[in-house]
Amino acid sequence: MRNYENLVIVKPTLTAEEIQASIKAIEEIITSNGGEIAATSPMGMRKLAYPIEKNERGYYHVIYSSIAPSAISEIERRFRINEDLLRFVTIKYDTNREKVAFNNMVEKAKKLAEEPKDQTPVTETPVAEAPTQTPTVETEDPVATETASE
């Protein structure tokens, strides 16, 4: 078993639920081929540096896992068939230095996944709602400080 990192770009034309469903399907492809997912980190909707299949944006998702080297070709073949994916990048972490970096990144991703778990359902809702929610948080904080001072 070797450490691999799969970066996957999902089509932006899908709805948020469809994106989550396709990511689950992608993770299933890895697990069904004998891979063990160590951590996942969603990078979210980003602007692409160059258009891919006439799409300007894409949903980035990173999966850290340990997979048998022989299973990689099968996983990549399945990725190529999947039409929801714009692009995938598979990277091997083999040398000692890379393994240390891999473990650090896995821990970071795990921490990030644990901390904002309450916020993840918020981010799944449309992006337009996110700015409206942040001011409410800001208004709450001064109230709390005022009550504390009184």
Partner: peptide, 23 residues
């Protein structure tokens, strides 16, 4: 990073003028 579309391969003249290092 270029393969993952995080960094562009090439930049045309238009892109250089409008948005250097914007993303």
């Amino acid at each position: 990073a270029r393969a993952a579309a995080l960094v562009p391969y090439t930049v045309t003249r238009k892109a250089v003028v409008t948005a250097p290092f914007e993303n």
